Amino acid sequence: MEPTRVMIIEDEALVALDLAKGLEKDGYLVAGIADNGREALELFRATPVDILLVDVHIIGDQDGITTAASLLEHRQVPLIYLTAFTDAVTLERAKATQPSAYLAKPYTLTNVRIAIEMAMHNFAVARQGTPPGKVIPLEKSPAADATDKETILRLNDYIFVKHQYAFVKIRLTDILYVEAENNYVQLVTPDRKFLLRQSLAQLLDKVDYGSMARIHRSYAVNIDAIQSFNEQEVTVAKTSLPIGRTYREEFLKRFNFR
């Protein structure tokens, strides 16, 4: 399965590099980074790109909106704006380019991932010629509409999770922790993260893995992956996760903690 190729147009080098690093860690391929319209157009023409992440304020005579319009004239791909500009005039100009999302800075990597997945899904649906008004859930491809395939499949010591229209194999012991945010959960392994559209309770029920322990309304951890813990938090892969009061007693019972 080919990773989604992301092009970043951003004039703040540190912001662009941090975003690129986070996206690559999550399995995306950063096709290139540009800080001005001319460079962006040259890169876009020469490089396969699946989606654009564009800041409104960039170096040069052309801003991000004008640059995005020029790129989309060359080839249609989904477009997401990442910017600190939220005034009415800028928003109206941005609307003309029909972006999939408009994220205000400071944004979170989780929100960027959600926006990318939604944008890629909606773009794929539009390319399939889905009739207006017909809604296809995020985790289904148009071809899967009749079969209602699950986003998580369990097979012995593995699960297969739906990621960009393919099922990716994950060993249960490789799951480090799961984080919930709104209607999504992020499943974290040592080398990748997977964003799924379902609740934490639904994911734990489908995974059905005895070593997974709910420690907070937003977190569940693999007991075998814990590096250290106390009554307030656990550490997994150098990441500290809080223990909620509601889940503390049940969690500590696993260690005969008194």
Rank of each mutant, 00 (worst) to 15 (best):
V77S: 01
D191R: 08
A104K: 06
V89Q: 13
F160P: 01
D87R: 05
M120F: 00
E92Q: 15
Y158D: 02
S141W: 06
A201Q: 13
L204I: 07
T130Y: 06
A115T: 02
N183G: 03
K140T: 10
A104Q: 10
Q202T: 15
D145N: 13
K206V: 12
V161A: 05
A104C: 04
S141F: 05
S211D: 14
Q128Y: 14
T110F: 14
Q186K: 14
T151A: 11
V135Y: 13
S199Q: 07
N156P: 00
I170V: 10
Q186H: 10
I136T: 10
T90K: 06
P142S: 02
E92G: 01
I159H: 08
A143P: 06
I136S: 07
V161Q: 04
E150G: 11
A126Y: 05
P131Q: 05
I170H: 08
S199T: 15
A144E: 15
T90C: 06
L196Q: 12
H163Y: 12
D145S: 13
R93T: 01
F160W: 11
E179K: 14
N156M: 06
R192F: 07
L109W: 09
F85E: 14
R127N: 10
H163M: 09
A101S: 06
K105S: 08
V89F: 12
L187E: 01
T108M: 02
T110Y: 08
K162S: 11
P131V: 08
G133V: 02
T108F: 02
V125H: 06
A119H: 02
L203K: 09
D145M: 15
V89R: 11
L103G: 02
K162L: 04
T97L: 06
D157A: 12
M118G: 00
Y81T: 07
S100T: 00
F160Y: 15
Y107M: 10
E181F: 07
V207S: 05
T108E: 04
P99C: 04
T86I: 09
P99G: 04
R154Y: 03
I114W: 07
Q76L: 10
